[in-house]
Design a binder for these strands. Structure first.
Lengths: 201, 201, 201, 201
DNA sequence: AGGTAAACGAGACGGTACGTCGCGTCTTTCA
DNA sequence: TGAAAGACGCGACGTACCGTCTCGTTTACCT
């Protein structure tokens, strides 16, 4: 009788397990190279050499340089993962702060440079923008329910305007991107969709 | 039979009859390949072979594949060049219509994926977004002057919200992009920045 | 001094004994692959997978693919091992018959393709050619002693001529290799070294 | 009208011609590495690096390491090419002298270790052995015609015995290979096939 | 019966070399 | 004299095997 019959838990697959040391050395090397030379110059050969690892070891975990780059950028986001903000302003400021870093710009760049049909693109789009948009939608819907926002407001458009403004400034850099944008955009948008305060008769 | 038999007169100087033909053959090949395989797979070798042209001939006119791609996308924009719109709605609808094509999406993609410091980037940014934004700014400023819009409105934020919403949908494709977005965004934004209609005392 | 010196019987080393099933599965897989793809394409990975065996199990018994190939070719030669022929013709015919098979050609190929200084080479050389040559030398020396062959005959040359002819045809394939070659070569060689039949005075 | 109409000679194809400097640098590097590490360790990567050449440049001229090795061994044989010997002894001694060098042994080894169906094999076989065998056949046939050799002698067997003895010693190295072998083998063989000197009745 | 130790399957590891692709530059020949 | 053709040095690609190394499991022996 094998132990397995009694253990509910995950049964490790046969064979030598993946070396966590190698795995993290690769990610570390990739992250450093992203900082130093950017995603376009991130080559598997260089990462392998820098991590002291054979190329096949990299390919065993990632299919190409882009996937590796994505992993290197995303993985360390073991950060608390934004505990779901309560207000739109907090949400927007948080997103701005997370994007307006070197890594944030890299994420946006990866998003932009990946094939628009690929998994990579979707993963990034979700992680960078759409998840926050989802949270924002929930907040807005609550405000609709509470009567603070007009029922016929085009919430999708509102959200895209706010998140779009952030992305636009991040990508184009034609205007500074900081928390004040969140405040301005929110003010404009909320004024645009709040319930009319009718004048007292 | 050579052409020369018919052109008696005007003896052309030795050897450059091909120039315009090659040039446009290259652009044509590049455009086709952009359609077929996307900008990432647009290689100089392939374009040269497809255009029946030597690689150096390409390099004589463009420094690398990205510049060629830009040229291939932009050049045929011999379209009337948007004769300066009078209202924001016309402006936005026009931009949406121009971007919401395969070529438009490609332009946005090239913009997003090019190095943010390069000439290419600036050229695209200007051509795709900033010029329209400039026109929009003029219109908004006129409305401020006319008193329709509050004097303290953050016009830059408003413009980025409207153009950002368009770019976001174009790049992410999570919501449909059409003229109705212009209408909604404009409605929200204008309501957000219009002068308060104070109630009569 | 180990106990083994005193115990007559075979003392099995502690632990799980080598699995005969695996051992022969490996050899079988190796033999099949030799047939199918030849010695150059015989890879340890493929043999392991085909035999349903881990690579270390192979390396526990053979140091590399060549040794495995040698073993795979030689092992099944549990054939009676040529009970030492009595005449040169029987010897030669036997060698021709043993070489002139797929396995024989593979043996010659292995011989040829192994490093000329390695153990493998010597093992093959011995097994394929030199052992038979040794037997032939004994026979010829007996004939010298009996007076049938001239005492000053260069026996080494004679043997190399006969065996060399066989090898040449085996490797080059420019002429058919069969028992008739043994007959012809022997006839020529023996006539070349037999004692002159002087004419009676 | 171009010169080509009048010149029968080879018309050089358009484009940059193959660089003779690179070509010979590659062959030189390959030859040196063959001397130093043998054919098994002759890798394209190493040859490319040593010759100061890109790998594709090598692959443009040779399909793999074996072909390159063959070329490296054969090419410099711009030697006078053995002006067809008149006697068997001269022929054999010449072959022994040409084979009994490092390069000769390498040629024989390449011959023996190449796939017996490939072009490579045939080219080597011809160059190394069969051409000489052809010449030998002509000489023997002349001797048959002159009556010095018995008409029913198996000439093919005789030739294979002589050339085989040489190849055998070259490959196996179990006996020294020098001109004396030619003498011994020839003596044995000729005695074996000469016309019987019948005793006077 | 229980312990112990070798051999097992599986498979990931650091490497080396493979043969290909695309770059951007160069050299030639032709028109 | 400009342009086609195409070879060049370079460097990264992704794959195939190498021979080694853990793993957890199995199988026999020796207490």
């Amino acid at each position: 009788m094998s132990k397995a019959e009694f253990t509910q838990e995950f049964r490790r697959p046969a064979g030598r397990p993946k070396s966590m040391a190698s795995h993290s050395a690769i990610l570390k090397a990739a992250r450093e190279m992203l900082e130093e030379v950017g995603p376009a110059r991130l080559t598997i050969d260089a990462v392998a050499k820098r991590a002291g690892v054979g190329k096949p070891t990299i390919y065993r975990s990632w299919a190409n340089a882009q996937e590796l780059a994505m992993a290197a950028i995303i993985e360390p986001s073991s950060q608390p993962e934004a505990p779901k903000a309560k207000t739109l302003e907090v949400l927007l400021v948080d997103i701005i702060e997370r994007l307006n870093t070197k890594r944030g710009r890299q994420m946006a760049l990866m998003l932009a440079s990946s094939e628009p049909d690929g998994e990579l693109f979707k993963a990034f789009a979700n992680r960078v923008v759409l998840r926050g948009r989802q949270d924002g939608l929930a907040i807005l819907e609550a405000q609709v329910a509470s009567g603070a926002v007009r029922a016929d407001a085009n919430l999708a458009a509102v959200l895209d305007m706010m998140f779009g403004a952030i992305m636009l400034r991040l990508l184009l850099g034609h205007e500074t991107l900081d928390a004040s944008l969140a405040k301005s955009a929110l003010e404009i948008a909320m004024r645009g969709i709040q319930k009319d305060e009718t004048c007292p008769a």
